[in-house]
């Protein structure tokens, strides 16, 4: 397990580039016109569906811990 600092997640390799702008625009478009509550619900569904796509429980637990470190 990572022994990185508890306050900062370890950098993950960049897998979005060179399509990062296209993804970001598509993500914003997915939220367009939704109320804040509906956007939160969409985000929850996205997390669950992306988790299913990743599948690997160890990877998922690492992501959950890493994302939490920025709180």
């Amino acid at each position: 397990m990572s022994t990185d600092s508890e306050t900062q997640a370890r950098p993950a390799p960049d897998r979005l580039s060179p399509n990062q702008d296209e993804f970001y625009a598509a993500l914003m478009a997915a939220h367009a016109g939704l109320s804040l509550d509906d956007s939160h619900a969409l985000n929850a569904r996205l997390v669950l569906m992306m988790a299913n796509r990743i599948g690997d429980i160890q990877v998922l637990e690492t992501i959950l811990r890493d994302a939490r470190k920025y709180s």
């Binding site: 900062q8 950098p11 993950a12 390799p13 970001y24």
Partner: peptide, 13 residues
């Protein structure tokens, strides 16, 4: 995230 995640730095536009 951009402060230490390379993928997020690339997202800064």
């Amino acid at each position: 995230l951009a402060h230490n995640q390379p993928f997020a730095r690339k997202l800064l536009n």
